[in-house]
């Protein structure tokens, strides 16, 4: 298996098959969120749909982020007079069912059930208001930074990703991101990949990835990204602050070193089977691992 065949196998093992348990769960959650919002804001009839990696086709098994956008008509005020009010009202509505974590423009949903408290659903609800009747551009509330609102356009984002021809590179770099605990946001990483691989869409995957890492290693301080939906209006510098840039740079350097020293498996691991996860077999293997432990420990808890 050459390196590009290997990378394809990795991609294959990260694909969420249609009808898979994971996808079904996500669809159920989406329906649940949508139901809740439609009930709470039935007078406003918001536009509710998938955003994020689900809409862009960049979703992978190990790191799925499901955005659910809830955009209100531009002349509607029943969901809130201001963007901030809309954001707060949507948060309050979601809080009746979820443990909601406020992010700058979105609301992260976690499990509020006492036995599963804090488990992250990896769902962000993004409230917003259309700028006009054409229902294309949207204003989002922004709780941090100087500007209290930003203008965006989901369809432009989706097109930007889909037309880049770089979906596979994006997926692998998202896997690289989660495997290495990088804190760069998915959105910023996607834009970064497209920026770094401009004009390189015909390259094979391994060459694309190496190029991206070389750029991040060498030029992490000067690389910049723009929001395709509002290139000059939205300041994305916070998404690539000094800490995030230095993480990207040092992990890129290390990744290239690993490939050089021991090959690609050091980066993405061995190819794992994407079969039905046999529960019984998993339990047996884990019990085997436990049985081999020389110095057992028992967990404790201090409130």
């Amino acid at each position: 298996m050459n390196e590009n065949e290997y990378l394809r196998e990795i991609l294959k093992s990260q694909t969420l098959a249609p009808g898979s348990e994971e996808l079904k769960t996500l669809q159920e959650r989406r329906a649940e969120v949508e139901g809740l919002l439609r009930e709470q804001f039935h007078e406003s009839s918001p536009t509710i749909r998938y955003g994020g990696s689900k809409a862009k086709g960049t979703m992978i098994k190990e790191a799925y982020d499901l955005d659910i956008i809830s955009y209100f008509p531009h002349d509607d005020t029943s969901a809130g007079e201001t963007l901030e009010e809309i954001y707060n009202n949507v948060r309050d509505a979601l809080s009746t069912k979820y443990y909601v974590e406020s992010k700058p423009s979105s609301l992260r949903l976690k499990d509020a059930d006492p036995s599963n408290y804090g488990v992250d659903f990896h769902i962000d609800v993004v409230p917003g208001r259309y700028t006009d009747n054409s229902k294309t551009d949207v204003f989002l509330y922004r709780s941090t930074g100087e500007k209290k609102r930003l203008k965006t356009n989901l369809d432009t984002h989706i097109r930007h990703i889909k037309e880049s021809g770089l979906i596979e590179a994006i997926q692998l770099l998202k896997l690289w991101r989660v495997r290495n605990g990088l804190r760069v946001k998915h959105f910023a990483l996607e834009l970064l990949v497209i920026e770094l691989l401009k004009g390189k869409r015909s390259w094979v995957l391994s060459r694309q990835l190496k190029h991206a890492w070389e750029q991040l290693r060498d030029n992490s301080e000067t690389i910049s990204i723009q929001d395709p939906a509002n290139p000059t209006g939205n300041d994305l510098s916070e998404l690539l602050n000094a800490g995030i840039r230095s993480e990207l740079s040092s992990v890129s350097e290390r990744t290239l070193q690993i490939i050089h020293d021991s090959g690609w498996e050091g980066v993405f691991g061995p190819v794992e089977e994407n079969g039905e996860d046999d529960r019984g077999r998993r339990i047996d293997m884990l019990k085997g691992a436990a049985a081999g432990i020389a110095t057992p420990t028992r967990p404790w808890f201090l409130p």
């Binding site: 499990d111 006492p114 036995s115 408290y117 488990v119 989660v178």
Partner: peptide, 9 residues
């Protein structure tokens, strides 16, 4: 930090 394990006793 993956949000996988519930934050419970």
């Amino acid at each position: 930090v993956g949000g996988r394990i519930p934050q419970t006793a």
